[in-house]
């Protein structure tokens, strides 16, 4: 067991190193002189910075060093948990992210839970039955899986907050204020997870062991809950690590719709301000989340599928 954990952790560190290297390499492709670009973005207009100004910046960010030196510096800093200093906000990236990431994680995780609940209820009740509800549920999942989250957010906002005033309109960080954004993120994901689960559910319903249980006198709901469900959730469990990453990025859009505090605001600002350290910092944070999520998925998978424990 200890060996497995160690192997997993080593794998995680490797993926993290690879993602960090990827983001480092991508920024080398930045067109033009970086120091000039930073000065221009800060000034908000095009100017010809003096050689002294450029030299100062080159000195501060080490742009004059060889790429290898820069890379080693970057990795060294990263190992110490230092993601560099934001070009525009002149604060350590780690501090900026740490201050804002809380609400985003809360939103992401609640959306994932909500998506699972919605898709499971629909799957267990509707799959494999030949009736209007079943077809409606399938249709609902196809439609919702294709909806852009920002649009769902807008609709919910207009219907439930602006028009009726049931929910606070925006900027609210209370639990009530969490409901609409979380629902917004959860709806398309529930459609996607639901389709995956439903496909598998339908396949498992036809399996001989299910018939076998029926011949022992198990009722339909019992078969669905005791036998089929456990098999049917496996693909969706596997996808949940990926889904958490997708939600994390979707949260950026949703925070913009609901004017919620979180990582989204800084990322959008950093992207348009071409604040590379901050953008790559947020990306690495999401990569860490993806890695952690996948470790948790592994644990969950072992819990659901005992074959892996004995193998």
């Amino acid at each position: 067991m200890a060996a497995t954990v160690l192997k997993r952790l080593a794998g995680a560190v490797l993926v993290l190193w690879a993602t960090a290297t990827f983001t480092f390499v991508v920024q080398l492709f930045m067109p033009g002189d970086r120091a000039t670009m930073i000065i221009n973005t800060q000034a908000g207009n095009l100017q010809n910075p003096s050689p002294e100004e450029i030299a100062t910046l080159n000195e501060r960010y080490g742009f004059d060093d060889s790429y290898l030196t820069q890379y080693l510096h970057y990795l060294g800093d990263l190992a110490r948990g230092d993601l560099g200093v934001s070009y525009n906000q002149h604060q350590p990236v780690t501090e900026i992210i740490a201050a804002q990431i809380g609400p985003t994680i809360v939103l992401t995780v609640s959306a994932l839970i909500l998506a699972w609940v919605i898709s499971l209820i629909i799957t267990v009740l509707a799959t494999g039955r030949d009736n209007v509800w079943s077809r409606a549920a399938t249709g609902f999942q196809i439609v919702t899986a294709a909806l852009p989250p920002y649009w769902i957010g807008t609709i919910l906002l207009v219907l439930l907050a602006v028009q009726t005033g049931i929910f606070p309109v925006e900027g609210d960080t209370s639990v009530i204020g969490l409901i609409l954004p979380a629902l917004t993120l959860a709806i398309p994901l529930s459609g996607f997870l639901g389709q995956v689960t439903q496909d598998e559910f339908e396949r498992v319903l036809e399996q001989p062991f299910v018939t076998s249980s029926r011949t022992r006198g198990m009722g339909d709901l019992g078969v669905r809950l005791r036998h089929v469900l456990r098999h049917a959730v496996l693909p969706a469990v596997t996808l949940s690590g990926w889904a958490l990453g997708a939600l994390f990025s979707g949260a950026v859009l949703i925070e913009a719709v609901f004017s919620r505090p979180g990582i989204g605001g800084i990322l959008v600002q950093a992207t348009s301000g071409r604040d590379i350290p901050l953008v790559t910092g947020v990306m690495l944070a999401s990569a860490v989340m993806y890695i952690v999520a996948n470790l948790l998925v592994d644990v969950a998978y072992r819990y659901v599928d005992p074959r892996l424990r004995t193998a």
Binding site: V15, A18, T19, F22, T23, V26, Q27, F29, M30, P31, W242, G245, A246, F248, S249, G250, V252, L253, L267, A270, T271, S272, R274, D275, I276, V279, T280, V282, M283, S286, A287, Y290, I291
Partner: peptide
């Protein structure tokens, strides 16, 4: 395959944002 696995650690939207940040809008 390894390369793709690394890319999968970044959500679609973030990969796009990184690209916009590096190359401008």
């Amino acid at each position: 395959n390894r390369f793709l696995e690394v890319l999968f650690a970044f959500p679609t939207l973030f990969l796009a944002l990184l690209f916009v940040a590096v190359f401008g809008q």
